[in-house]
């Protein structure tokens, strides 16, 4: 009898503990799911692994933040729309100035920022997207500040001329080429409109994809991986007047 009662008590306790552990575990798992949301306004440092791997591998030590000479990066505090303790930046505040030696990657002890990144120009922190309705160039003004500020100018941003209906003059508009845009956000920082008309966002938010059946038979063509940017007729030529500020840069 007594051993039976003891056994029953033991089993009851075990079931209770298992219940507490399961409830706690489920609550915890729910909390973790909530935590993993990343705001589209937050960009990751260069060389960051794909978000799920990055979030898992980052140990939240902030060594990248300390290594950044421009104060670009910050660690997400509780209350930010970014997983707590992970590094991010908002380019309108401070963009990534694309250091040649990429000190943030060198400082990362875990590999969440991948040292396999061959050069900073290969970083894909995001892609610049232009709101034509507020872009000064699209209104017919000669702005092109984003183009001139772009560290990979002529590859990531080009300026195309569009004929204007009402006059003999043309409109010069910036065009972003995602295959070369690093997402550094210097363009977003430099944009003179009250709210930036050019903004860096995670590529999957704005990038479409042409179906495979629309590609040329050799796999090339617009939208195919590795395609060279399609540019206007002036490709490779300096446009007098347009590029006067960069006359002596190669």
């Amino acid at each position: 009898m007594t051993t039976d009662a003891g056994r029953r008590e033991f089993l009851r306790r075990m079931a209770q503990s298992a219940g507490v552990a399961t409830t706690g575990g489920l609550l915890w798992a729910y909390l973790l799911g909530q935590q993993q949301q990343v705001s589209a306004h937050a960009l990751r440092p260069p060389g960051a692994l794909p978000e799920a791997d990055f979030a898992a591998t980052c140990i939240k030590c902030g060594q990248c933040v300390q290594a950044c000479p421009f104060g670009t990066l910050r660690l997400a505090a509780s209350g930010d729309d970014v997983p707590i303790g992970t590094p991010w930046f908002s380019p309108r505040d401070v963009p990534c100035y694309m250091c040649e030696d990429v000190p943030c990657i060198a400082a990362c002890p875990t590999g969440a920022l991948d040292r396999g990144l061959p050069a900073i120009e290969e970083a894909r922190m995001g892609v610049a997207a232009i709101d034509q309705e507020s872009c000064l160039s699209w209104q017919g003004l000669r702005c092109e500040i984003c183009y001139r500020e772009c560290p990979v100018r002529n590859d990531a941003i080009t300026v195309e001329n569009h004929p204007r209906r009402t006059s003999g003059h043309a409109v010069f508009v910036p065009l972003v080429h995602a295959s070369h845009c690093t997402g550094c956000g210097i363009c977003e920082k430099a944009c003179p409109t009250e709210l930036a008309a050019i903004r860096v966002v995670p590529p999957d938010l704005v990038k479409g994809r042409i179906g495979d059946h629309y590609r040329l038979s050799d796999g090339s063509g617009p939208g195919s991986p590795g395609a060279t940017p399609v540019r206007g007729e002036d490709q490779g030529k300096r446009v007098p007047g347009l590029d006067y500020l960069n006359e002596d840069t190669p």
Binding site: K60, C61, Q63
Partner: peptide, 9 residues
């Protein structure tokens, strides 16, 4: 001592 208690150098 760069970093924090999670990882440092």
């Amino acid at each position: 001592l760069a970093g924090n208690l999670s990882s440092s150098m």
